[in-house]
Design a protein around this nucleic acid. Structure first.
Lengths: 258, 258
DNA sequence: CAAATAGTGTCTTTGAGACATTATCGG
DNA sequence: CCGATAATGTCTCAAAGACACTATTTG
């Protein structure tokens, strides 16, 4: 085939190319505030940010030093942005094998003063207990969790305010429109635990009212009772356990719900 | 602030950077096959591809010459990938001010033999009549529409088979889960016209059965009757016209439909 | 037994789904 | 008046929403 000829004559310098290709990761977790015995949980959706060091790893002044930012970094040539996000999350937080999804590209000219730098934004869902191992790395002097209600009041680096805002909107939508809520829950969970996760993103009466939600969970096609299995972790009265099952959810706005 | 210091010492060559940054556009249109008078339309969802020239604009052998490919091209440094997609669509097809959306990034190492080339994929919805002006440009020897049912049988350039497959899945989902169907319809339309658009992507009985759909359209919260306005373009009996209204659609899988 | 959470009984209302029937017009 | 498409009548069944009531356990 003639691709070889074409390749020989191809001038890789013909077009101006980006000055950098990066991945950013919006790491979400849910903290169970006041986890008392025999109480349904009260949960808060949080996002993990790093505080950028004053000096970079080579001892020079760092860009956007002292500001809060999404963890992330440059993509290596032999990996995709998604793989880079996985790798960075592993390197920076020790967390692996979690739900990670690409949700946007940020490439507006001028978004990064260092030049033409393209960032791929991902969101990650990390169970609370896995974040205990988190640690600060080269570029970060601190690592902290912030409630999504308050994170946008911070002084944020680059265009990360925008990216974080988008990430919050995406995870809100995903929690309600897909079954990702399961990533925040144990394998088997009670109706009030699922309810607590959903209440971090909606106030709708069908979800907030206990009786309505306890009844509804039984008719949801993607959730199944674990036969005969109960727990007392959320109340004195033993509570039925449920699990997610893999069925495709028809989310058409023109169809009735099945 | 200290960003200026940091910038002075920043070495733009510190990281290996991509060899190219491109946009691809999956242009969809709907062809009304056999548009007879007093007949509801029968529609077919199609995608526009170009056939890559044997020689490039400078007369050298072209990459992936002779294969079918998505229109697209290199992003300029002073624009975003989205703007580049708009520009290329305008330049290559003369079409502007249409629905255009980013849906994915393709950056798997080795996807393009020319090097480390990142592509942002977009889909566009173009009304049939606007595509009459389309024309072949430098890199394209032919421009043609293909039914989404058959397009994947072609010999496609680069990883465009994958991108096209994803684009078709995205537009199927968007047509059913959002109100983008309106981009394929006139401002005011009949139930059977909307039904014909949806039938290009689903066989579900609630949509295929006339009586059911004619009744359902009245209860959809995002569609409104145009009071007293009827047309005879789809049948001898005058048919009620409808229009989309802007309301946010609650697509939660945990809620009842409102 | 008091308190708290889980879960059901019951009633009303809404609408989905299926199928038959009626309405309207051009030719 | 035939044929085709649009639209409604009617019946059944499922479930949503609201609210009261019952069940189960611990301290």
């Amino acid at each position: 085939m003639s691709n070889e000829q074409a390749l020989q004559q191809y001038d890789v310098k013909k077009y101006r190319t980006p000055d950098g290709y990066t991945s950013d990761i919006a790491v979400f977790t849910i903290l169970s505030a006041k986890a008392e015995t025999f109480k349904p949980p009260f949960m808060d959706l949080q996002i993990m940010l790093i505080k950028r060091s004053m000096l970079d790893s080579e001892g020079r002044p760092n860009m956007e030093a002292g500001k809060w930012a999404l963890p992330g970094g440059f993509v290596d040539p032999e990996e995709s942005a998604f793989q880079s996000a996985q790798r960075e999350l592993r390197e920076e937080t020790g967390v692996d094998h979690i739900h990670l999804e690409h949700f946007g590209v940020y490439d507006t000219p001028g978004r990064d003063p260092r030049g033409w730098i393209i960032s791929n934004a991902h969101y990650a869902i990390v169970p609370e207990h896995l974040l205990s191992e988190r640690r600060a790395n080269d570029d970060a002097s601190e690592v902290e969790l912030f409630s999504v209600e308050k994170v946008l009041d911070l002084d944020l680096a680059f265009d990360h305010a925008r990216i974080i805002q988008d990430a919050i909107a995406v995870i809100r939508q995903k929690l309600l429109e897909t079954t990702v809520a399961k990533e925040f829950l144990p394998e088997e969970f009670t109706y009030s635990e699922l309810q607590a996760v959903l209440k971090t993103v909606t106030n709708d009466s069908a979800i907030v009212l206990d009786a309505a939600f306890a009844r509804k969970i039984k008719s949801l096609p993607f959730i199944q009772e674990v036969p005969g299995k109960k727990t007392t972790r959320t109340s004195k009265k033993p509570t039925q356990l449920y699990r997610f099952i893999d069925v495709e959810v028809n989310n058409s706005i023109y169809h009735a719900k099945k």
